[in-house]
């Protein structure tokens, strides 16, 4: 796969289709790949990597890259193509400046999971079908790839490429029972106090680094309200635990019905806060209240929360669904 992708990148550069390529660049180790722009055959041959650690979603970089002169090629995994579509819909990407190469994916690995599995000082990983062979400072070990997979990949919503100019590899399908709402359902089944305790426990870990926001393809405001000192609510740290939750609740509302569930927020969170659960709660509610909706699946439909139809649920639905009143 990597060889096909690199060959394609070089071909697109050399036949003049594009003059830049957005991909993943090699690091100090095998897993620390950095999104990067490549402009020559030499750079691609030397530094371009596509592996189970190419998890970073490149679509948001196209907001900036597509505004530059010339054309950029971007390699997008299935979930990344949903983000790409959503950004197009919001007029954030200049489509004619981008050549999308869709690439098939069978799940990305997460270094944190490999570490949590008990591997310390990992020096290299070799994939052999469904197993990973690790070389570590403390000797070799093997593990199932499935145990190393990122949470978002274990319950992947779709392996289908929804936007591309050309593709590499076998395209997959939308996955119906991905299990991605299982944990949300568990949270819904909790008592309000239990749920509150769960979220306080998670959100109190937040260090307000804003990585979740900065990586999010649905967060592309030129100036975020939380960064604007004149907004009166700009904060670098929460004054109290209430404010801490406010940041997350406001953000979740702001991306509701636009979030494609790409999982980048949870991937980048240095504190391992399961932010995807907030987003999935919104998605689940939207599915139940407005009919099944997957943002980024197409270019035509309007996100339910940015639309109005007579069938829309009434605000009073919160009383029907909200459980016991205090």
């Amino acid at each position: 796969m990597q060889e096909l992708i690199k060959a394609k990148a070089i071909e697109l550069l050399e036949n003049g289709t594009v003059d830049r390529v957005l991909g993943w660049k090699t690091g100090e180790f095998f897993y620390d790949l950095t999104p990067a722009v490549f402009t020559s055959r030499e750079e691609i041959e030397k530094d371009f990597v596509y592996s189970v650690f190419s998890g970073a979603n490149l679509s948001k970089y196209l907001v900036k890259e597509s505004r530059k002169d010339g054309k950029v090629a971007a390699f997008l995994k299935p979930c990344d193509t949903y983000s790409f579509n959503q950004l197009l819909k919001e007029h954030r990407i200049w489509r004619d400046h981008v050549h999308v190469v869709g690439i098939a994916c069978d799940g990305m690995c997460d270094m944190e999971k490999i570490r949590a599995y008990g591997a310390k000082g990992v020096l290299s990983v070799e994939r052999d079908g469904d197993t990973l062979k690790l070389e570590t400072l403390y000797g070799p070990m093997t593990m199932n790839k499935a145990d190393a997979e990122a949470e978002r990949c274990i319950c992947c919503k779709s392996r289908k490429l929804v936007a591309y100019d050309e593709k590499i590899g076998e395209d997959g399908d939308v996955i119906e029972n991905s299990g991605r709402f299982d944990m949300v359902a568990k949270l819904e089944a909790m008592t309000p106090d239990e749920r509150y305790a769960f979220w306080q426990g998670e959100l109190s870990k937040c260090i307000r680094c804003n990585a979740c926001r900065n990586v999010c393809p649905a967060c592309t405001c030129e100036k975020c309200v939380f960064d604007n000192p004149k907004s009166g609510i700009a904060q670098k740290a929460a004054v109290n635990s209430f404010e801490e939750s406010m940041y997350h609740i406001i953000r979740a509302f702001h991306v509701a019905s636009r979030c494609t569930d790409c999982g980048e927020c949870s991937r980048v969170c240095p504190q391992n806060i399961p932010l995807h659960l907030l987003n999935r709660k919104f998605i689940k509610d939207i599915n139940e209240l407005y009919g099944e909706y997957q943002s980024g699946a197409d270019l035509e439909t309007r996100p339910p929360l940015m639309n109005f139809t007579q069938e829309d649920c009434e605000p009073s639905v919160v009383y029907e669904r909200g459980g016991k009143q205090a």
């Binding site: 950095t34 990067a36 307000r208 680094c209 804003n210 990585a211 926001r213 900065n214 990586v215 980048v268």
Partner: peptide
């Protein structure tokens, strides 16, 4: 070029 400006590294 691809730094998100998140500040995780500093925190």
């Amino acid at each position: 070029e691809s730094c998100l400006g998140c500040g995780t590294c500093t925190f």
